[in-house]
């Protein structure tokens, strides 16, 4: 094994994991900049990132469950973000409990709890992930509708800064940055490599003494925690309690993850891929709008792009698994 080969295989791993989404993002960013030079002005970054943040965080929140394998997926992330936001706007704020030091822990705890509930039902009780999280999706949407049947504007609060500037930096860098920080922090622990081992081959991980069930519960909990952060970003953007605002993120987020090179079979994937996958989808909408494509056509363009994206991603993965079989 020469070092050249190692470098090449490292490059391949990096290439196939997220570079497609990165390149697409850069490409779309260039087009956007060409069509709309104003986005290059730093003044607009905060607004742009503020709109982007809930989507990017939803994509990151969807990642751990998918990486944990076993057909793992969490399609309750969007409604969870909406519900937590609604609780903040309709319950915490009016009752004078909206102070950051109090409300942030509550919102994050809510997210983690729902995520872990999903994890327990899926990993411990062996429920199929798609059907489980879809049911939870329905329940959460129902609760949101019950708490906030009609959209209600929030009273002025601290979250609005997160969609604008906090001192010299765009506020949403904080909300986008927090999941990344947590993830990087976890890389210092054993959790990440355990998670990826479980995702790639749970039977082997189990036989080597890894607690597969607990690992998966923590993975779903982590997704829920990220959803809690996403709820803060969503509230920062909307400044209202709106039960209809979560659903749109659910499947878009998973599309972003897939576009970012994370295989839905588990065991491979990056948070970076999720962010860039989300960025590509986000910018695609911008580009189409800038090209004067009527807004009624956006949806079909997005569907076609998603289809093309996952096929390109799947082809890359198929080529890789094909080449590894040849070694067998």
């Amino acid at each position: 094994m020469g070092s050249v080969e190692t470098i090449r295989s490292q490059l391949q791993i990096w290439f196939r994991s997220s570079v497609f989404a990165v390149l697409l993002t850069v490409f779309l960013l260039l087009i956007t900049a060409f069509l709309n030079p104003w986005i290059l002005a730093p003044a607009s970054w905060a607004i742009l990132l503020g709109t982007f943040a809930p989507f990017a965080i939803a994509a990151m929140a969807s990642t751990p469950a998918i990486v944990s394998g076993g057909g793992g997926i969490d399609i309750s992330i969007g409604p969870l973000m909406a519900l937590i936001g609604i609780v903040f706007v309709k319950v915490l704020l009016p009752n004078g409990l909206g102070a950051p030091w109090f409300s942030i822990p509550i919102m994050l705890a809510m997210g983690t709890a729902v995520g872990m509930f999903n994890g327990i039902v899926i990993a411990q009780f062996r429920y199929p992930p798609v059907i489980t999280t879809m049911s939870v999706n329905f329940v959460l949407t129902g609760i949101s509708l019950a708490v906030a049947p009609i959209p209600i504007a929030a009273i002025p609060n601290w979250t609005s800064q997160l969609a604008h500037w906090i001192g010299p930096i765009p506020g949403s860098l904080l909300t986008i940055g927090l999941p990344v920080l947590i993830w990087v922090g976890l890389k210092k622990t054993a959790f990440n490599r355990t998670l990826f081992a479980v995702g790639a081959d749970d039977a082997t991980a189990f036989s080597a003494g890894i607690d597969v069930v607990r690992t998966r519960i923590v993975a779903y909990g982590l997704g829920g925690l990220f959803a809690g952060i996403g709820a803060i970003a969503l509230t920062a953007l909307l400044q209202s309690a709106d039960a209809t605002q979560g659903g749109q993120y659910t499947l878009l987020a998973i599309a972003a993850v897939a576009l970012g090179g994370t295989t839905l079979n588990g065991g491979r994937g990056t948070l970076r891929g999720a962010v860039f996958g989300a960025a590509a989808i986000f910018l695609l909408q911008d580009v189409l709008t800038a090209l004067d494509v009527p807004s009624t056509w956006l949806r079909s363009a997005y569907g076609a792009a998603l289809l093309a994206g996952v096929i390109v991603g799947a082809r890359a993965i198929m080529r890789r698994s094909g080449s590894s079989e040849a070694h067998g």
Partner: peptide, 29 residues
């Protein structure tokens, strides 16, 4: 597509659903 590229039907039908309803939306304005 789902079978050939072994992509979860959730993703494929999501994309196809957007594409179909999007085209209808665009066509009928």
């Amino acid at each position: 597509i789902a079978h050939k590229y072994s992509i979860h039907p959730l993703i494929v039908t999501l994309a196809m659903g957007s594409l179909v309803s999007g085209v209808l939306l665009g066509w009928t304005n």
